[in-house]
Nucleic acid binder design. Structure first.
Length: 534
DNA sequence: CGTGTTTGACCTGCGC
DNA sequence: GCGCAGGTCAAACACG
């Protein structure tokens, strides 16, 4: 914002496009803008006064009135601005608190890297809302403090795909987290001093998950990521073991099944499949919640998917889908990160959530992160509209659930932030460029820094009402705040091993600026993937 | 030898 | 009950 203002001043062009509408929530870019407006107005008045003293007498009262009304308007706007600033300040505080707490927990866990398996209390899970350890208590406190500020149920900052579900279905606090579930298995193992065959453990896990699903099947989210990728898989930072491959109907390319192997009992699985319509598109579907500390390179993906899933879950839980058909109703949400092309990142959130479909196949709500779309339009308006139509505004090119959206209700939130020409420093691919992989964090860091820096200047591309709409969306929707906070976590969390909030970036992220919505991508590390044939 | 992949068999849920 | 499709298992195999 400030950058825009200064640029305007020094460039000799003072453009005052601020439209003040009563009752409209929006940012006044800078109070100085208003001052400039005042000055300009007074200069204008002087010119007028020099022309005619009679007119001066006649119009003097009018101008005084106008000035008075303008002042009143400006006061109102300034008050509103201050209020919004405070609101954003609070959001940023909450976010930073969470970030600090998370890093404390991560550091604590890093000090005891070999004890992960011994005590669940030492586990650092991405699941919030767990209470069986000090760590979890801290996180719960954070959640509670956040709840005090916002709506209690909807603001539960979810870092796990099914965190809400867990907290809502498990009655005992000690059973809130997946690690607790697996802790029961461990206890059994301890009690009987018996080593279970892997398949028995897996079956136990599956049974528990099945129980969970049976209790609340609609609350288990899948996050599907579509990305253009020439290589067989994309590296998301986690370690995966392939446990199966199947040719799905309607797609000649086989679907591969992977299980997370970072922790022995991690329930997270993913499916990888080529899009049948476009073989260059790789579709990765994640399911479950990691019950172990994630490698730094994997946190971005985890946070991103968690954000998407939490958005999905909050949307599906709060918005009544209304009467559905007799078949199983499912919620499919698409979250697009539009990239104009590979070299020019143009990240956008496109959130048509709550797209209700009547697919009987889709047992779980699915959110799709579409990273493949070439944004055809150069300027994406920020708008929040709701369409209830027979056709989707966002027709997924591929749908895991084979949805036939006959009756769909779609909420679309396009949240465009900026356009920049920085090279896209990320790749989902798992290619053989080891050097590139090693430098991935550095690239990501510079990319994010550049994007944050360029966010201010990019504001010139956005109409004021667009900014106002985005601001309104941020400040008025606690769910969006929550999801945004998680997304921001993924952004900053991916910044090249810097586990603390960068003061510099903190300055760049002034509360007077709209949030630069960045697309966060996992750092590519030399993972354990091999090339698979899909 | 340990780890990960391959692949046919098996299990399960769902629709008819 | 049957067939189909998706998902998983586990023995065999490959690789470093």
């Amino acid at each position: 914002m400030e950058a825009v203002f200064r640029k305007s001043i020094h460039g000799g062009v003072v453009k005052q496009d601020i439209k003040i509408k009563s009752g409209e929530e929006g940012f006044v870019e800078d109070i100085n803008d208003l001052k400039v407006g005042k000055e300009r107005k007074s200069v204008h008045n002087e010119e007028d006064n020099s022309k005619s003293s009679q007119q001066k007498d006649l119009t003097g009262d009018k101008e005084d009135d106008q000035l008075e009304s303008a002042k009143a308007d400006m006061d109102e706007v300034m008050e509103e601005n201050q209020r919004l600033k405070k609101h954003l300040d609070r959001i940023m505080k909450d976010y930073r608190n969470l970030q600090m707490q998370f890093h404390e927990v991560a550091q604590r866990d890093a000090e005891k890297p070999n004890n992960v398996k011994h005590d669940e209390a030492e586990l650092v899970s991405l699941s919030l809302g767990t209470t069986s350890s000090d760590t979890k208590k801290e996180l719960s406190k954070l959640i509670l403090s956040k709840k005090e500020n916002d709506e209690k149920e909807e603001d539960n900052l979810t870092l796990a795909l099914d965190c809400k579900f867990q907290s809502s279905t498990k009655s005992s606090p000690s059973n809130l987290s997946p690690e607790n579930s697996f802790g029961e298995v461990k206890d059994d193992e301890k009690g009987t001093d018996q080593t279970w065959p892997p398949h028995k453990v897996l079956k136990t896990m599956r049974n528990e998950e099945d129980d969970v699903v049976q209790q609340n099947p609609a609350k288990r989210a899948k996050v599907s990521v579509r990305v253009r990728c020439d290589t067989p898989t994309m590296n998301d930072g986690c370690q995966w073991r392939k446990y199966g491959q199947k040719v799905a109907k309607g797609n000649p390319r086989p679907r591969a099944y992977y299980r997370c192997t970072v922790a022995p009992n991690c329930p997270v699985r993913k499916q990888v499949q080529r899009c049948s319509q476009d073989m260059s598109i790789l579709i990765t579907t994640y399911e479950g919640t990691h019950n172990h500390p994630l490698p730094h390179s994997a946190t971005s993906m985890a946070f991103t998917t968690s954000a998407a899933a939490s958005m999905l879950l909050s949307g599906s839980s709060s918005s009544g889908s209304g009467p559905t058909s007799t078949t199983t109703s499912a919620t499919t949400t698409a979250l697009n990160y539009y990239l104009s092309d590979n070299s020019k990142p143009n990240p956008f959130y496109n959130l048509p959530n709550s797209s209700i479909s009547s697919s009987s196949n889709s047992q779980y709500p699915t959110i799709t992160l579409d990273l493949t779309s070439n944004s055809s339009s150069s300027s994406f308006p920020i708008h929040h509209h709701r369409t209830i139509a027979s056709s989707n505004n966002y027709p997924p090119r591929y749908n895991n659930n084979n949805n036939n959206n006959n009756n769909s209700s779609t909420n679309i939130l396009n949240f465009s932030s900026f356009e920049s020409n920085h090279l896209l420093p990320m790749s989902w691919s798992n290619g053989n460029n080891q050097a590139y992989h090693k430098n991935q964090d550095i690239h990501s860091q510079s990319y994010l820094q550049n994007n944050i820096k360029s966010a201010a200047s990019a504001q010139t591309l956005l109409p004021q009402d667009t900014i106002a709409a985005a601001t309104k969306a941020i400040t008025s929707d606690p769910k969006f705040q929550s999801a945004l906070a998680v997304a921001l976590t993924s952004i900053i969390g991916s910044r090249g091993g810097n586990h603390h909030i960068d003061e510099k970036s903190g300055q760049n992220l002034k509360v007077t600026e709209p949030f630069p919505v960045l697309c966060s991508f996992p750092s590519i590390s030399p993972g354990n993937h091999k090339d698979y044939t899909l």
